[in-house]
């Protein structure tokens, strides 16, 4: 869309001098209701917990201490590394990474296939992928839960086929959570990869073919490097929301599949509420995500395109 813009249109200065005034509502709303809350959350992570939820305004490192260190039941033993929460973060990173991998595995061929249809049917294919992108994530996750229940349609179907003799118990497993993440964020991979593939110049493939490369060699040595920015964008769009996902692990998983999202949510909703600890966990998540985005921005600035 933007590529079709006539050159110079974006440099228009018709309303010169009004920029800051027109931008004011954005600064006001996002500044006050997002930037300020995130800063406040950072402060909360250094406060003392109040037992019925909420905080006492006394500065302490207790939340981070609880996250990283184990000081025994009464807090007087020499500190050791506490693996529980690091383990939850590690599992989340692993699950999000795996979901990204599978989304790429299915998403790239899909994007390629759609981008190489003729112009008349391409929008129809693209539209089919776009619809789930906008459909309520809760409803999609609930639908997946219904589908893979022990007595759900998937098991009935497999039993009827005779592939299995006993229903598979999929709910509450890491596999179910993985399937949920993959299913939730698959369109997020297809769309940016499609945008990159659509701009791919097939003269490059022709040149490669003239030099006796077969299609798969061309894919590996020419196409993938050229469309890499789209692939990286897609990976980020899948990885980041998967990492902090709440619905898929909560509805499809159980206690053994706990992820960051549920850990944070529990601190604010559950009986064991600990606001500073929840804020600290959210800060650590935010740091990881901003780190990934920053790395991406720097790679792009260096001419990674």
């Amino acid at each position: 869309m933007a590529a079709a813009a006539p050159a110079g249109a974006t440099r228009s200065e018709i309303y010169r001098g009004n920029g800051p005034r027109l931008m004011l509502p954005v600064w006001a709303f996002i500044g006050i209701f997002l930037v300020l809350p995130v800063l406040l959350m950072a402060i909360y992570s250094f406060l003392t917990k109040e037992f019925r939820g909420g905080v006492i305004w006394e500065i302490t490192l207790a939340a981070y201490d609880q996250f990283f260190l184990d000081r025994g039941l009464f807090g007087d033993e020499p500190p050791q590394i506490e693996w529980t929460y690091i383990g939850i973060f590690w599992r989340s990173i692993w699950q999000a990474g795996l979901a990204t991998f599978f989304c790429l595995l299915i998403g790239f061929p899909t994007a390629w296939f759609i981008a190489t249809r003729n112009a008349a049917v391409r929008p129809v294919w693209l539209f089919l992928v776009t619809i789930p992108y906008w459909v309520n994530l809760l409803i999609r996750t609930v639908s997946m839960k219904f589908l893979i229940r022990d007595t759900g349609p998937l098991n009935e179907f497999l039993l009827w086929l005779g592939v299995i003799s006993e229903p598979l118990s999929l709910i509450n497993t890491n596999f179910a959570v993985q399937l949920g993440l993959f299913y939730s964020y698959l369109p997020f991979m297809v769309l940016p990869v499609y945008a990159a593939v659509e701009r791919y110049d097939f003269a490059l493939s022709e040149a490669a073919a003239d030099l006796y490369a077969d299609n798969w060699t061309t894919l590996r040595l020419v196409i993938l490097p050229v469309v890499k920015p789209g692939i990286v964008a897609g990976c980020i769009l899948v990885f980041v929301p998967s990492l902090g996902a709440f619905l898929a692990p909560d509805l499809l998983g159980g206690a053994k599949t706990f992820m960051i999202g549920s850990l944070i949510e529990e601190q604010f909703k559950g009986a064991a509420g600990n606001w500073p600890f929840g804020a600290a966990a959210a800060m650590i998540l935010l740091t990881i995500v901003l780190g990934v985005l920053l790395l991406h921005a720097r790679a792009q600035a260096k001419g990674g395109r």
Partner: peptide, 14 residues
């Protein structure tokens, strides 16, 4: 860019 769960927590605290 901010993960949804972080926005949620920050908004509640705010």
């Amino acid at each position: 860019m901010v993960p949804e769960i972080v926005t949620a927590v920050a908004s509640l605290i705010f």
